[in-house]
Every structure is written in structure tokens, then in C-alpha cells.
Simulated scan of single mutants.
Amino acid sequence: METFFASCPRGLESVLVEDLIAAGAADLKQIPGGVHFLGEWPVCYFASLHSRIATRILWRVAHASYRKEDDIYHLALATPWPRWFFPEQTIRVDVNALKSPLKSIDFVTLRIKDAICDRFRRESGKRPMVDRREPEVRVQGFVSSDECTLYLDTSGAPLYQRGFRQKTVDAPLKENLAAGILRLSGWQPDVPLFDPMCGSGTFLAEAAQIALGIAPGARRDFAFQRLRHFDAVLWNQLVDAARSAEKPARNTGIFGSDISPVAVRATLANLDRADLLPVVTLSSGDLLAIDAPAPGGIMVSNPPYGERVSSDDELAAFYPLLGSALKRRFAGWNCYLLSADTRLPKLVRLTPSKRTPLFNGALECRLYEFRMVAGTNRATEQARVAKQHPEPMG
């Protein structure tokens, strides 16, 4: 059994566990930002192809305690890199540290790179070149207070890059975070879904792929395909099985809109590139004025906050109007709003039934769930008051 680590947006670790269990992973251990697990290479291949939540999958190749930089150099030197890739391939080394006493992580990174090159020179007389932009092989180091772990990245480009998005808007949502929010909402393809502030269409594209059974990794390549022990036959079988399970593009109950024509055009371009245009009903409109596209369903959205709006005053004016629109036009809907603004529930004047901490990159957010029950709040309040103070009979 090999040892792997799958990273993900913080807050989605339990959802990632579901994907890894489906791939056949064993001995899963959650930590903030990811999950350690055991599995043979087919597990890594399957998870890379099918997980909508993982950001990267790293293969652990070395681990030891250390006291100084030279200890890390010797750990990397003792690691059999030539067994896994060729000296003609380009490399990049990155190091993350947590509570490390070492003064310079850049120097540690350099020492690991030197050790890899020295190991290749010792065995073949050649050494790999460094390419920081598009390396063929990525080496990841993690240094704690007294231990160092070395990984080979099996993913290459982050797994949230599905291979088709070309147009973005300000503060775009990562695809795996969008997929995680869809999972947390409990949405299923037979339930209407609406994103009324769709931006570049990330929620819509993820939902459309789920509705058609499109594996998120079926249209891209991976770093493990460049490793010497890559099993091309097995991989092709997995991809063929995934592609054969896809459903033909058709109209579904997935709806999107945005007040910005630029955002609508970006969404159109991204859906078109992914051959998902027939799956989504897209329109241009202001959430504060449009009607719900169905009697009930799930709304998901990443409303304006901070990075996408110029001032707090604009937010303070927008949020109460948003709350009123949800009350008036979306009775019967469960609404999920992702925001870094902790004032949102108070300003929209709604009480969330759930608050889930999530991270959008380094930005700490909350996913707020608002269950918009059928009937107006005024009618509900009148019923409550009448129950407490019944009119006298006679």
C-alpha cells in the first residue's frame, strides 16, 4: 500500500473523505486542509479522475526527523528519485513549513533540489533541469517542528482545473469549492438549481457535469502519467469507463443569471467550451427583480462582498434588498449564500438554519443556509400572534 495525501479547501475535508472512500482508499485521517490515506495506484488514479473536491493528490516518498538543513538534504539524497522519473524531465520543488525552527525555507527548498540533482548525477551522470512555470515533475516538501516529509505530486495542474474554463470574472470561485457547496446543499440533479449571481458560471458548470455524469478529470492530463511506473493500460480503462457512463447533453433544471453582461458572456463562453450549453438555462437579470425559475429548489450563490464591491456602504444597502427579494420571490427554496461578510445574516434580516465555515482560498467564509418557507413572513407572524392572543368569543 502506498501513502497519499489529498488536499482540499478547508471545511470540505469530510466531503473529500466520501470521494476517497468511493475510490477505495483505506486508513483515512482528516487534518485541516486535507486527508491522509492508503491505497494502491488504482485508488490514486480513480480519485484523480472522479473526485470533485480534491485540490491535489500527493504521493509520500520519504519521511524522517531532522535537526538541521543537512538532515533534510541527506533524506532527499537517500530517496530513489531515478526510480520514478528521468533526468531529462524538468522539476520544481516547493516546501511548506509549520512551526519549523529553520531560518530559511527557501534554503531548505534549494537543498532538496540539490539533493535530487546529486542523486541523479551519482546514478546516471545527468541531472534534471528546473522549470518553475511548467515542470514535468513537482516535488513537495513539508517541514514541521522536527520532521520532514517529501512527496511527489501526482496531479500537475490543480484538480479543480477541469480543462475547459477560459473566461473569469473578479474573485472567481474554485471549481472544487463550488462542487463541495453543491454537495453540502444536498442538491441532486432532479431538483431545480439556480445561481442568480453566476459570475463566470462555476456553480452552473459543476452542476451540469454532475447532471450528465461527467467525471471531472476525464478531459485533462495528470502528473502521474509522466512517472516511470505509470500504468497506461489501467488508466485508459478507467477513462473509457468514465466516458461511456456520460449522459447526452440535454436541458435540465439548472438555471443561471447575472446582472452583469460581462459575467453572462463569460458563463456562455465557459459552458460552450465544455459542451454544456444545452444543459443550462441562462439569462440576464437583477436578482432583486427576477422571479424564481421554478416553484421550489435550491439556490446557490457567491454574492458580492469585499473584493467584488467597492465599499461597505454598497453592501449595507444591497443586503436588505437581497433579503426582501428572497422572502418575496423564493418561497419554497433553500438558499445557500457563501460570504466572508459575517454581517450578512443580520443585514439580510434572515436567520440562517445552518452556518458552515469554509475557506475560499485564504479567505475565511461561511456558507449560510436560509430555508425560505412557503407563505410570507408576515402571515407567519400573524399566525404566531393570533395563537398567543386569541380573540374572545361571542
Rank of each mutant, 00 (worst) to 15 (best):
W333H: 06
Q209D: 02
E123L: 10
N176C: 11
V169K: 06
A76M: 05
D190S: 05
K247L: 15
A340H: 03
G306R: 00
A6E: 04
D118L: 13
T342E: 08
L288I: 06
V17E: 09
A25Y: 05
L358K: 00
R92M: 10
A232D: 09
E391A: 14
W235R: 10
L288N: 06
E18V: 14
R343N: 09
N270R: 07
A78F: 02
I31N: 04
R329I: 01
L315I: 11
L276Y: 04
A97P: 00
S260N: 07
D272T: 14
G297Y: 07
K354R: 15
G297V: 08
A266T: 09
V348D: 05
V239A: 04
F5D: 00
C44I: 08
C198F: 07
S104W: 12
L321A: 09
R60S: 00
R119V: 06
T109E: 15
R138Y: 12
E369A: 12
G297W: 09
P392K: 15
P9T: 06
D231V: 13
E175F: 01
D114E: 15
K346Y: 07
I72R: 08
S124N: 11
W235P: 10
A386W: 05
V300M: 03
F107G: 00
E307Y: 03
S301C: 14
S14T: 07
P248D: 13
P82Q: 03
N176Q: 10
T3F: 12
G213C: 05
A54W: 01
R121N: 02
S244A: 15
D312A: 15
W41S: 13
K174N: 10
